[in-house]
Simulated scan of single mutants.
Amino acid sequence: MQINLASRKRRLVALLIDYYLITFLLVSIIFLILGPDFIEKEGGFPTLLLILSIPIGIIFYFGKDSINGTSFGKWIMGITVRKENSSNESPSLVNLFIRNITLIIWPLEFIVIVFNKNKQRLGDQIAKTLVYKNPNKSKKLPRIISIIGLGIIFFVFILSFVASSLKTSNAYKLAISEIENNKEINQTVGEIIDYGWMPTGNVSIKNGEGIATYDIKVIGEKKEMNVQVELIKPKDGNWEITSFNY
Results as ranks from 00 to 15, higher is better:
Lys41Phe: 00
Gly43Val: 05
Leu49Met: 14
Leu49Val: 11
Leu50Thr: 13
Leu52Ser: 06
Ser53Val: 09
Ser53Met: 10
Ser53Ile: 06
Ile56Glu: 05
Ile56Met: 15
Gly57Arg: 10
Ile58Phe: 09
Tyr61Arg: 09
Asp65Ser: 10
Asp65Ala: 05
Ser66Phe: 14
Thr70Met: 13
Gly73Gln: 11
Lys74Phe: 00
Met77Arg: 07
Thr80Phe: 00
Thr80Tyr: 00
Thr80Met: 06
Val81Cys: 04
Arg82Ser: 01
Lys83Tyr: 00
Ser86Asp: 15
Ser86Cys: 06
Ser87Phe: 00
Ser87Tyr: 02
Asn88Gln: 15
Glu89Ser: 13
Pro91Arg: 10
Pro91Ala: 04
Ser92Tyr: 01
Ser92Trp: 01
Ser92Phe: 00
Leu93Trp: 09
Arg99Gln: 12
Asn100Asp: 07
Ile101Pro: 00
Leu103Glu: 12
Ile105Asn: 06
Pro107Ile: 13
Leu108Arg: 11
Leu108Asp: 02
Glu109Gly: 07
Phe110Met: 15
Ile111Arg: 11
Ile113Thr: 12
Phe115Ser: 14
Asn116Trp: 04
Lys117Glu: 13
Asn118Gln: 14
Lys119His: 13
Leu122Met: 14
Leu122Phe: 09
Asp124Pro: 06
Thr129Arg: 09
Val131Lys: 05
Tyr132Cys: 06
Tyr132His: 11
Lys133Thr: 11
Lys133Trp: 02
Asn134Gln: 03
Asn134His: 04
Pro135His: 11
Ser138Leu: 14
Lys139Thr: 12
Lys140Gly: 01
Leu141Ile: 15
Ser146Met: 14
Ile147Gly: 02
Ile148Met: 12
Leu150Ala: 13
Phe154Gly: 02
Phe155Pro: 05
Phe155Ser: 15
Val156Cys: 02
Val156Glu: 10
Phe157Leu: 14
Leu159Val: 09
Ser160Phe: 01
